[in-house]
Amino acid sequence: MSTVETTADSHDEHDDDHHDHGEFIAHHFDSAEQQFDSGKLGIWVFLVTEVLFFSGLFVAYTLYRYHHPEVFVDASQFLDKVLGGINTVVLLFSSLTMAWAVRAAQLGNNNFAGKLILITMVCAAAFLGIKAVEYSHKWDLYILPVSYYNYMEGYHPEAETGGIAGALNISKWLVTLSMLPLLCLALFSAGALFMAATGKRLMAQFMLALAIMMSGYFVGAFAGQTYQNWHEANLAAEEHAGDHGHDDGHAAESATAGPDSTSERPPQIGVFFSIYYCMTGLHAVHVIAGMAALSWLYLRCLKAHFRPDYFGPVDYVGLYWHLVDLIWIYLFPLLYLIN
């Protein structure tokens, strides 16, 4: 009988124990825990779709490695284990800070969670910086997807004599790739100053964090490039000491000699790089998406939104970020460590 007597909005009476902070409970949920559980299952299922999304590339990888093991061994020599290793550690560290940020959010410590998230953001950007160094180095050497692949033994790209690239003695590709981060850095710094000047402290702090994140990219790129230069110098020295006669003049000659030198390598070598660029490129897109999500989290930390019964967003973005790390954990040995 009571069924009929209770009418509209009967659900609300079950919210009693949480009504003090109901503003984060959407109207269609009955409790904070239901909301959290839904979000949690949702993000796990989303990760499932991510795994399957990447699976296509792993299938292509497995297939072509199965057919051309020699190509994969040959091609992976072009990938720098040390840079890859550093990037792995950078991502692992960002995972640590992310997991820590979840803990902080669970304990309601927004301030500390924000700092950890900022570190995570910086690591993500640094990862991309190092990646940019790797990419630009390969592009200099014409190590590209199969249809553009044009690497020639012994070819050393001359550093540009003019422009920014020449002045910094780095690849023109790295300069090109760094344009967007530079623009963002400038925008965010200007934004931070503007916000500070107009007295919007919170937004100023947020903009500052974004600027710090973007500078992480340059830290990564700088470190990567320094290593790269050192490594090149080392190689050159070794070559010289080994006296194989591969001096610069010879290299330049073979560069102009053209197609002969490429024919030693099977034409499928470019397929490895097709797969390499697809895998790492897609992964990089996920890193960028992660940076956006982390920035949003940081803003919410600044606004002190999280507390022991409402920390879902940190947890969800954290899970996503760990997945990005997981994928890299597999990409690293699959692409860089082939013998």
Binding site: F36, D37, L92, R103, Q106, D309, F311, F332
Partner: peptide, 28 residues
Amino acid sequence: DHGFAHPVSVKLLLSVFFSLVFLTVLTI
């Protein structure tokens, strides 16, 4: 008691991280 939150101890997080770094070095 954090309701449905299960904060992981800092000690555990750090030890997991260092194991991961160790394994990365090992695999290289």
